[in-house]
Design a protein around this nucleic acid. Structure first.
Lengths: 199, 199
DNA sequence: GGGTTCCGAAACTGACAAGTCTCGTATATA
DNA sequence: TATATACGAGACTTGTCAGTTTCGGAACCC
């Protein structure tokens, strides 16, 4: 027997998928996983609830898909490459990059208490939000080692998460803005001194 | 007219307050704010729901009180004082201290998405969880400066939150255990090099 | 003892949200 | 044109949970 679906009737408009997932991310960033309702997402996407349930079997699956689709094609080419470690690190503070990081952190905040209950969601969040940033920083450090700017025996793994850790902590625990001044103080007061570059 | 309450009837057993608040913290650490129900707290404390509502007007107030009562009388005397910065920092890894920090972090995780909606809760969490740790680290750094172990021009504010930031990030974002090895790598790979103490 | 408030247990009420279904309409194939 | 599916809108069902009330019993004061 064939399981092929017949090709009858109106076709599903898959351009709406991205719009719905983006609406879900907005609601998620604003209200968190528990505060988010399917009605909110449908309203923001100007879609019917049935349209959402036709595409995703449950709220949980919708959220996993929405988080996974944040995973930007982080092109190595559009990362800073200034020739100095400090230049690369500071180069991450372009308005667009900061804006993107802020939204991701808000989404992550609303997801945190769910991660322990849904390994699948935890993995999606790691792939889309946590890992790309650490990758970029590891790249900066490795290039600095390769060009002899910093010693080769530094702890790359640990140092690569310093800026992300401190930015998250400042937002989540201290509830203060992650502004340019703070990021500069992390770079010049922690990371660069730690790799032996004093200003 | 007098507003003095009459002293009739059975007296409220205020020794139950602490037991109920402690049960609330357990549930909070396990299920987060949204996942926590009053029934869970009552069941864990072997109390009736009415008993809880006789003492706190709402779930929100109960949680604020529970978090506030975590604020231990952090005695400066029982903080490490070893004579070296590294000794003081490492001295924070006593089993009891780590256990305490783990529970606080779990509670905080379940609270994070609420903090933006309840400034009162945010303040209680800051006073009870976030600030005490930063205070201790600032003390260690200041003593190291005073004894001439490290330069006086370091950025104490920024450096004092490095270890807490990285421990939180590792737990929340990376979902890996904050074990002794990791903490040592933060101290020896980031903090001490950053203040000019190389191993 | 009599009146009052506490206690744990559990029934009850009301609101809200996940998920389903229906309706009128639009768009596709045959 | 006839049939089948997608669409937005919204009614409907069901379960859960905050908060209230009721119950039988215990503790306290007069």
């Amino acid at each position: 027997m064939t399981l092929l679906a017949p090709k009858l009737g109106r076709k599903r408009d898959h351009t709406r998928d991205a719009e719905i997932l983006d609406a879900a991310l907005d609601v998620l960033a604003e209200s968190g996983y528990d505060g988010m309702t399917i009605d909110m997402v449908a309203a923001r996407a100007k879609a019917g609830k049935a349209t959402l349930y036709r595409r995703w079997p449950s709220k949980a699956e919708l959220v996993i898909d929405a988080v996974a689709c944040m995973k930007a094609p982080q092109n190595v080419d559009d990362l800073p490459n200034t020739g100095t470690l400090r230049g690369d690190l500071v180069g991450m503070f372009k308005p667009h990059t900061i804006e993107d990081a802020e939204r991701k952190l808000k989404v992550m905040t609303g997801l945190l208490s769910m991660l322990s209950r849904s390994p699948e969601l935890a993995d999606a969040a790691y792939q889309a939000i946590t890992d790309p940033r650490a990758r970029a920083t590891r790249l900066f450090l490795q290039r600095a080692i390769d060009r002899g700017e910093i010693p080769a025996d530094i702890d790359i793994q640990t140092l690569s998460i310093v800026s992300a850790s401190m930015a998250s902590y400042r937002t989540l625990f201290l509830r203060k803005p992650v502004d340019r001044e703070f990021l500069i103080s992390v770079i010049d007061g922690v990371i660069l001194p730690a790799v032996g570059l004093r200003s």
